[in-house]
């Protein structure tokens, strides 16, 4: 896909990403989007279409919010305890609105389901990055003696993929201590 790599475009993507995070893709029209971004509507209709901004917003989101988070997780050394810290940090980000509304990838899955193949491609690479990071930590947990059966690592990694999805709903209706308890109990299931 052709990209316009001017500073202006990058700034627009950064702003657009936040707008989509709060409104979803369908929840905002091209005209409203142009108003939020402070550009003319013809810019959105002709130069930087809404769909292009959305796709690049998803990339911006993963590279800004998700990748550094996951890199830290992969480099962690304490196995299950590192996972606990990782999920606690996610809870904080959800509650203090560092993540203004849930997780953008989760919101997008719920909103767009299987309507757009390009988006599905992006999920798959996002999910496999997530799953690989969990496996790295789970292997360390196994070395630390926290997981008995090495053969269960893939099953546990798959199970943990659900955590960002369930927390993305639960943070809306539960308080911090309930959320942390949920995380602790989920991690206890991994043994």
């Amino acid at each position: 896909m052709a990209r316009v790599l001017s500073a202006t475009y990058d700034e627009l993507v950064e702003k657009a990403q936040r707008v989509f995070w709060l409104n979803g893709y369908k929840g905002i029209s091209a005209k409203e989007l142009s108003e939020e971004l402070g550009v003319s509507s013809s810019t959105i209709y002709t130069k930087y279409p809404k769909e292009m901004l959305f796709m690049d917003s998803l990339d911006y989101y993963t590279s800004t919010y998700s990748d550094p988070f996951l890199k830290g997780l992969r480099e962690s050394t304490e196995g299950i305890k590192s996972l606990q810290e990782f999920f606690y940090a996610l809870i904080e980000a959800l509650l203090d609105r560092t993540f203004p509304k849930s997780c953008l990838m989760v919101n997008t899955i719920v909103e767009m389901r299987v309507e757009n193949q390009d988006i599905i491609q992006k999920y798959h690479s996002y999910i496999s990055k997530l799953s690989d990071s969990y496996k790295v930590v789970l292997r360390k947990a196994h070395k630390l003696g926290q997981i008995k059966d090495e053969n269960r690592i893939d099953a546990y990694a798959e199970f943990l993929l659900g955590m960002i999805f369930s927390l993305s709903i639960f943070y809306k209706i539960q308080d911090k201590s309930e959320l942390k308890k949920y995380v602790d109990e989920q991690l206890k299931l991994i043994d």
Binding site: V106, I109, V110, Y123, G162
Partner: peptide, 9 residues
């Protein structure tokens, strides 16, 4: 929650 979000894809 997970099966009605993640599993959609």
């Amino acid at each position: 929650c997970t099966s009605t979000s993640f599993c959609l894809i």
